[in-house]
Design a protein around this nucleic acid. Structure first.
Lengths: 237, 237
DNA sequence: TCAAAAGTGTTCGCATTACACCCATGG
DNA sequence: CCATGGGTGTAATGCGAACACTTTTGA
């Protein structure tokens, strides 16, 4: 197995990296893996790895994420290409970064996997490579996208209360909203549908907090699709 | 000079391609080069080429654009990575696409260069590689970005009339605006400053059309920077 | 019964829209 | 003098922002 690959011109290697965000009901988190090998052994980095010849960068990102963290995510969005000449000490590596949003139910799955864990966004230590920079870019990006796409819903379970949704928006954007205005706006946007009165189902999960239990909603995907087609769409906050 | 480059794993080649938009006062145009070599010899494609080991993809894009079209553009924005396995018949090539906006004064410079020319956006013939697809993505992108960044101004000369600006927005978005409302909104946005009464200067350029001459404005960059910092910014249309 | 969270409506101001007439200029 | 395009104001409407009290629930 001493195969090698030869080219007439030098080729940079291509890697895909995944910035995966999650939400635990209070804080925004990001999924990081502890590196088990040099370079940056022991440091935290995003899940990621090198492109194979039979896959697109999107497929590569999804595969590496699955292999390294156990997370199965199809909705990976391109964040950008990072190509500083010396960003990897081994050889010239150009990284295509992706970002994704994990539903709360998936967060646990990630925890199972070897060295992957969730870190609160404002407590992330220094990362390997240029991943600090990539993380900043990803945060900027999600803050922008949340205005136009129902990005937020990807971070919650299938059913959620209005205040969970509000806390999510507040965590991502770093601001506070008026509860009444938030509710009004979300509802009149028409993307939420109320869940019938089977609240008991999730009572276990929700028994954590005191006070009155919130009404449950779910994201109405088909409504979203039809709005996207008419492109009359803006999630202003 | 029989140098070759050998790697332990296969490496895809990396290329950068530039989707450059221009505006002639009436139509949106895109800059295309006629390919002089196989594959797709004789077909139109974006300016672009392979990444060198001592440059970032941004530098690569700017260099290829300069070499192939004579255009000197610093403000290239990443559009996305296109990595279908068979998008290039020669070898596996992953393309990083950029888009840019050329000021009207620069359009002529482009015309000088060998095989580069401007094509009206709705008269673009079939392109080489997957460049048709990339063009569609670029259009979508510019239509989105124009709402948040003063993208449009990059397509006009330093001085322009309100109706030139309006025609540009209309050409990009494919809609019509009310003249009065457009003017009002643009002015109260505070990004334009009126040019002192030296209209004579450009009279040559502007003598083309009949009717009353429009007032000239210029884009107020420093105002834009300060607004961006406060991030109180939205160009709604 | 107390504390914590959820539910709900109204008012005010601003921004967007729709809409029509007069003015300047060049041919 | 006429055709083309430029400049301008107002009224109606809709949306976002601000704001407080009552209800439910679990401890």
């Amino acid at each position: 197995m001493e195969e090698t690959y030869t080219y007439k011109y030098p080729h940079a290697a291509i890697a895909a990296d995944c910035v995966v965000f999650g939400f635990d009901g209070h804080e925004l988190k990001v999924l990081l893996v502890t590196r088990g090998a040099e370079p940056f052994k022991g440091k935290l980095a995003f899940a990621g790895g090198f492109l194979r010849m039979d896959e697109t960068v999107e497929e590569c990102a999804a595969r590496e994420l699955r292999e390294e963290t156990g997370l199965e995510i199809n909705m990976l969005r391109q964040l950008g290409v990072f190509s500083d000449v010396n960003r990897d000490p081994r050889e010239r590596v150009v990284s295509v970064a992706f970002y994704a949003l994990a539903k709360r139910t998936e967060v646990k799955a990630g925890d199972d996997a070897a060295d992957a864990a969730w870190y609160a966004i404002d407590q992330v230590p220094q990362l390997a490579f240029d991943h600090d920079y990539i993380l900043r870019q990803a945060l900027q990006r999600i803050r922008r996208d949340i205005h136009f796409e129902p990005v937020g819903f990807g971070l919650l379970g299938n059913e959620f209360t209005m205040s969970e949704l509000q806390r999510l928006y507040e965590a991502i954007l770093g601001v506070k909203f008026d509860r009444r205005n938030f509710t009004k706006k979300m509802l009149q946007m028409g993307l939420l549908e109320e869940v019938g009165n089977e609240r008991q189902a999730n009572s276990a999960q929700r028994a954590i907090h005191r006070g009155r239990a919130g009404r449950l909603y779910r994201f109405n995907e088909s409504m979203y699709e039809s709005m996207k087609r008419k492109n009359a769409f803006r999630l202003e906050f």
